[in-house]
Amino acid sequence: MNERQPHRGLFRGSEAIGEEMLTWRQLSSGLYRRVLHNVYMPSCDQLDYVTKCHAAALIAPPHAVLTGRSAAAIRGLDLAVTTDPVEFVVAEADRFGPVREFRIRRTTLTAGDYEPWQGIRLATPKRLALDLLLRHTPRTQSRSRCLRTAVSDLDCALRAGLVSEDQVAATLWGRRDRGIALAREAFELRDARAESRPESEYRVILTLAGLPPEPQFVVRCPDGFEARLDLGYPEHLIAVEYDGEWHNDEDQPAKDLARRERLRALGWRVLVYRARDLRDTPDQVVADVRALMG
């Protein structure tokens, strides 16, 4: 058998058949789920993104470095969904890929960029942070969208303590990778105070428009009332808030309403956005804030 230890119920189909553990008919009977090329798991087992990364480790060459959102997932940071590709970097001259459901980028690597993991290599926190910034290019989406996504990923890594600002700055210094200019711009827009990726994205949108807000601004009143705003403009008494799905849970809508009524009684104008707003009309927040500023 392969020296790599499978994760949970993962196995290589070719090995299972070759060692007469299963027949091809059994493998394709519906009892097993194909995760990646030649990698299967019992259909009753739950497939998530971390499991998908482990599946990739069974078929990637030993020198491939799992990085970016994939390495972040292995290190406990939830930045990817199950349908996202597994991300690797390899040396410039490497011939690995293309592989379906893998995202493979060729770059300069040093021994300090990775450590052994599951028979392949896992990017160090500094390396994965670099690749979170370098994975976005304006070739397929707008520069603004690239910055929004890169900054939100980096904010999450910084807030989780996976990597420090000084480490990322040192990693960016002196590099000439494709996309390094955008990576450095994204780094300048970072803010570890952000508590969600959508909050980071709205902050970037507003900052790029010349309207930088204050993240996690706390409104305090003499009677003890406190409200922490996702994004605030205290000099204009404008609050920008993002309501994720959990804001629909149980009595949360009533709590949100009461909190915002208190803010409005204090003179604050509150703008609230949801997932569909960020997806369909992300720049509307700029027009809304400017209108309130007069």
Rank of each mutant, 00 (worst) to 15 (best):
E3K: 09
G9W: 01
G18N: 03
M21R: 13
M21S: 12
W24N: 14
R25M: 08
S29W: 04
Y32L: 01
R33Q: 08
L36M: 03
Y40P: 01
P42H: 03
L47G: 04
D48E: 04
A57F: 02
I59S: 04
A60Y: 03
P61L: 00
V65C: 06
T67W: 03
A73E: 05
G76I: 02
D78V: 10
D84L: 02
D84Y: 05
V86P: 06
E87A: 11
V90E: 11
A91S: 15
A93M: 14
F96N: 08
E101G: 07
G112H: 13
Y114A: 13
P116K: 10
Q118F: 11
L128C: 09
D131G: 12
H136D: 15
S152T: 03
L154Y: 08
E165D: 14
E165R: 12
I180C: 07
A186N: 05
A194F: 09
E199S: 01
R203N: 02
R203I: 02
R203K: 05
V204C: 03
L208A: 00
L211K: 06
E214N: 11
F217L: 14
R220W: 15
L229Q: 06
L237N: 14
E241T: 12
D243P: 07
H247T: 04
N248R: 12
E250I: 02
D251C: 04
R260N: 14
E261H: 08
L263H: 07
Y273D: 11
A291Y: 08
